[in-house]
Amino acid sequence: MSAIETTYREALRQALIDAMNEDPDIVVLGEEVGLYGGAYGVTKGLIDQFGPERILDTPISEAAIVGAAVGAAMSGLRPVAELMYVDFVGIVMDQLANQAAKIRYMFGGQIGVPMVLRSQGGTGRSAAAQHSQSLEAWMAHVPGLRLAMPATVNDAYHLLRHALTLPDPVVFLEHKGLYVQKGTLDTAQPDAPWGKAVVRRAGHDLTIVTYSKMLLESLAAAEQLAAQGVSAEVIDLRTLNPLDEETVANSVRRTHRAMVVTEAHLTGGFSAELSARIHESCFDHLEEPVARVAGEDIPIPVSPPLERNAVPNAQLITETGLWLVQRKAPAWAL
């Protein structure tokens, strides 16, 4: 099939359909995934196509949804459990972190847990403190979990397809602000292999490392930076586990300056991990400390102007880039 223009949502849906057609062991379970078609429409129509035996609407019982997915994965199925909002992972953390992630290891490699936990996070809908978080650091801290966070339409499709072939549990985090994002899907051609970062824009003055929706803000910032004479390279990590340190290090060794951009809170966030690794791998090449542009260390407020200011945007990325490269201090710097 040749490339088509579609949305992030449709690409995810197509990935589920194609994977389910190829692998009869795949089942989807979660709240509102069937009749309703998914809270954000990703599973729309799947129940008509695959029937209620494979598309299972569940009660509001997150711990059991994920726990049952673990047991089913150990017993011959390949479940896709949907957690409507990543914030609800608080309820399932035992099943995810203590069970799914550790079963292969604790049991000496006898069995794996080939399941995918799909969820979505992020701000943008005034959904408030319990429906807007970016919790990837919670999962990234757990050995035994793979973690994918697609930013583009093609990645939405291919990363999900690949996740559904892996022998171990994968947490697959979408962004609520990306579902309507348009882009090109080529089902025959992934942007890169699973586990490899992609340079979305080449540049030589500065490396911006990011993932998920912040890729869009970073690319917009790179455009603004270019207009001011700064050439920024933008790297999309695509998966946080596995983490492609090589692509990042190769870039920073050329540009000598790095910025990490995440929507997630700064403190204890994945931005800290990335910054540490860049410092470790590129110490002698860095002209400036790695700058972290991240979400504020506050719960997400409901009020639109507050919510907007709680997370980074292209302007902040641009200002930080100008400071890193040209020593041009922004208005908020003294």
């Binding site: 700064l266 700058a291 991240a294 979400g295």
Partner: peptide
Amino acid sequence: DVFAPDQPKPVPVRTRLNAILS
């Protein structure tokens, strides 16, 4: 309101960037 009113507030990202880059 992240913490009680008499407690230190979270440090804004811009303040931190300012300190580091200065």
